[in-house]
Amino acid sequence: MTHGTFCWNELNTRNAEAAKKFYGETIGWTFDKMDMEGGGAYYICMQGETPVGGIFTMEGPAFDGMPEHWFAYLDVDDVDKRTNKAQAHGATIIRPPFDVPDVGRIAIVKDPSGAVMGWMTPVSRP
Protein backbone atom coordinates (compact mmCIF):
# COMPACT_ATOMS: atom_id res chain seq x y z
CA MET A 1 0.00 0.00 0.00
CA THR A 2 1.10 3.51 -0.66
CA HIS A 3 0.48 6.73 1.26
CA GLY A 4 -2.35 8.71 -0.32
CA THR A 5 -4.00 5.79 -2.13
CA PHE A 6 -7.25 4.01 -1.40
CA CYS A 7 -6.54 0.77 0.43
CA TRP A 8 -9.87 -0.71 1.59
CA ASN A 9 -13.60 -0.59 0.92
CA GLU A 10 -16.21 -1.65 3.40
CA LEU A 11 -19.94 -2.22 3.05
CA ASN A 12 -21.82 -0.71 5.99
CA THR A 13 -25.14 -2.55 6.19
CA ARG A 14 -27.85 -3.57 8.61
CA ASN A 15 -28.14 -7.03 7.07
CA ALA A 16 -24.76 -8.70 6.57
CA GLU A 17 -26.34 -12.05 5.72
CA ALA A 18 -28.35 -10.57 2.82
CA ALA A 19 -25.24 -8.73 1.59
CA LYS A 20 -23.12 -11.88 1.76
CA LYS A 21 -25.78 -13.80 -0.17
CA PHE A 22 -26.02 -11.09 -2.85
CA TYR A 23 -22.28 -10.62 -3.40
CA GLY A 24 -21.58 -14.32 -3.11
CA GLU A 25 -24.16 -15.18 -5.78
CA THR A 26 -23.47 -12.26 -8.14
CA ILE A 27 -19.71 -11.63 -7.80
CA GLY A 28 -18.54 -14.98 -6.45
CA TRP A 29 -17.03 -13.67 -3.24
CA THR A 30 -16.59 -15.89 -0.21
CA PHE A 31 -16.41 -14.52 3.31
CA ASP A 32 -14.09 -14.98 6.26
CA LYS A 33 -15.58 -14.06 9.63
CA MET A 34 -13.54 -11.91 12.00
CA ASP A 35 -14.77 -11.31 15.56
CA MET A 36 -14.78 -7.65 16.56
CA GLU A 37 -13.75 -6.25 19.92
CA GLY A 38 -16.87 -5.63 21.97
CA GLY A 39 -18.85 -8.29 20.11
CA GLY A 40 -20.25 -8.63 16.65
CA ALA A 41 -18.69 -9.94 13.50
CA TYR A 42 -16.87 -8.39 10.57
CA TYR A 43 -16.69 -10.24 7.29
CA ILE A 44 -13.69 -10.10 4.97
CA CYS A 45 -14.84 -10.38 1.34
CA MET A 46 -12.55 -12.76 -0.55
CA GLN A 47 -11.97 -13.10 -4.29
CA GLY A 48 -10.21 -16.44 -4.30
CA GLU A 49 -7.34 -16.02 -1.83
CA THR A 50 -7.34 -12.21 -2.05
CA PRO A 51 -9.15 -9.99 0.49
CA VAL A 52 -11.03 -7.33 -1.51
CA GLY A 53 -13.26 -5.60 1.05
CA GLY A 54 -15.23 -5.95 4.24
CA ILE A 55 -18.78 -6.05 5.53
CA PHE A 56 -19.62 -4.18 8.71
CA THR A 57 -23.03 -4.38 10.40
CA MET A 58 -24.36 -0.98 11.48
CA GLU A 59 -25.99 -1.42 14.88
CA GLY A 60 -26.99 1.03 17.57
CA PRO A 61 -28.10 4.64 17.77
CA ALA A 62 -24.92 6.02 16.17
CA PHE A 63 -26.21 4.69 12.85
CA ASP A 64 -29.84 5.85 13.13
CA GLY A 65 -30.90 7.50 9.88
CA MET A 66 -27.67 6.58 8.09
CA PRO A 67 -28.25 4.83 4.75
CA GLU A 68 -26.41 1.64 3.92
CA HIS A 69 -23.30 2.47 1.90
CA TRP A 70 -19.84 1.52 0.76
CA PHE A 71 -17.15 3.28 2.82
CA ALA A 72 -13.59 3.92 1.55
CA TYR A 73 -10.32 4.02 3.47
CA LEU A 74 -7.24 6.00 2.47
CA ASP A 75 -3.74 4.71 3.29
CA VAL A 76 -1.78 7.34 5.23
CA ASP A 77 1.78 7.04 6.49
CA ASP A 78 1.01 8.22 10.05
CA VAL A 79 -2.67 8.49 10.96
CA ASP A 80 -2.04 10.49 14.14
CA LYS A 81 0.14 13.06 12.40
CA ARG A 82 -2.17 13.27 9.37
CA THR A 83 -5.39 13.70 11.38
CA ASN A 84 -3.75 16.53 13.34
CA LYS A 85 -2.79 18.14 10.03
CA ALA A 86 -6.30 17.55 8.63
CA GLN A 87 -7.89 19.20 11.66
CA ALA A 88 -5.57 22.19 11.29
CA HIS A 89 -6.84 22.50 7.72
CA GLY A 90 -10.54 22.49 8.59
CA ALA A 91 -11.41 18.79 8.88
CA THR A 92 -13.52 17.34 11.69
CA ILE A 93 -12.23 14.15 13.29
CA ILE A 94 -15.37 12.08 13.78
CA ARG A 95 -13.49 9.24 15.46
CA PRO A 96 -9.92 9.89 16.66
CA PRO A 97 -7.23 7.34 15.80
CA PHE A 98 -7.76 3.88 17.27
CA ASP A 99 -6.07 0.52 16.82
CA VAL A 100 -7.61 -2.50 15.14
CA PRO A 101 -5.51 -5.57 16.00
CA ASP A 102 -3.76 -7.12 12.99
CA VAL A 103 -5.23 -4.41 10.71
CA GLY A 104 -3.82 -1.00 11.60
CA ARG A 105 -4.54 2.36 13.13
CA ILE A 106 -7.69 4.06 11.84
CA ALA A 107 -9.45 7.42 12.15
CA ILE A 108 -12.73 8.65 10.65
CA VAL A 109 -12.31 12.07 9.06
CA LYS A 110 -14.82 14.56 7.64
CA ASP A 111 -13.14 16.95 5.19
CA PRO A 112 -14.12 20.63 5.04
CA SER A 113 -16.61 19.90 2.23
CA GLY A 114 -18.45 17.40 4.46
CA ALA A 115 -17.20 14.16 2.83
CA VAL A 116 -16.43 11.37 5.32
CA MET A 117 -13.84 8.62 4.90
CA GLY A 118 -11.51 6.41 6.89
CA TRP A 119 -7.80 7.10 7.10
CA MET A 120 -5.66 4.08 7.93
CA THR A 121 -2.04 3.31 8.66
CA PRO A 122 -1.95 -0.44 7.98
CA VAL A 123 -0.04 -2.74 10.34
CA SER A 124 2.29 -3.91 7.60
CA ARG A 125 3.61 -1.60 4.95
CA PRO A 126 5.76 -2.82 2.06
Rank of each mutant, 00 (worst) to 15 (best):
G118Q: 00
L11S: 08
G24R: 10
R125A: 07
G104T: 06
T121N: 01
K20I: 13
A107W: 00
Y73N: 07
E17F: 10
M36R: 10
I106T: 05
F98D: 05
R125S: 07
P61M: 08
G90L: 10
P97H: 14
V79Q: 06
V123Y: 09
E25Y: 06
I44R: 08
A107N: 02
A86K: 01
D64R: 08
V100E: 05
W119D: 00
G4R: 09
Y73V: 03
G48R: 05
I93Y: 07
M34G: 03
A18G: 12
V109W: 00
A16H: 10
G24D: 09
D64I: 11
H3N: 15
G4K: 10
M36T: 10
A91L: 07
S113C: 07
P96M: 01
G60I: 10
T2P: 08
M58A: 03
T30M: 02
D64T: 14
A18Q: 15
K20M: 14
G114P: 04
P96V: 02
E10D: 14
T30D: 02
V100A: 09
Y43S: 06
I93S: 05
A91Y: 02
D78W: 07
T5A: 14
R125D: 01
E25T: 15
T30N: 02
Q47K: 12
I27V: 15
F63G: 02
M120G: 00
E68W: 08
E10P: 05
T83Q: 11
I93E: 03
H89T: 04
T92G: 01
D99S: 12
G54I: 13
V116R: 00
V100Y: 07
G60R: 06
I108M: 07
V116K: 00
G4W: 06
H69V: 07
C7Y: 05
M120Q: 05
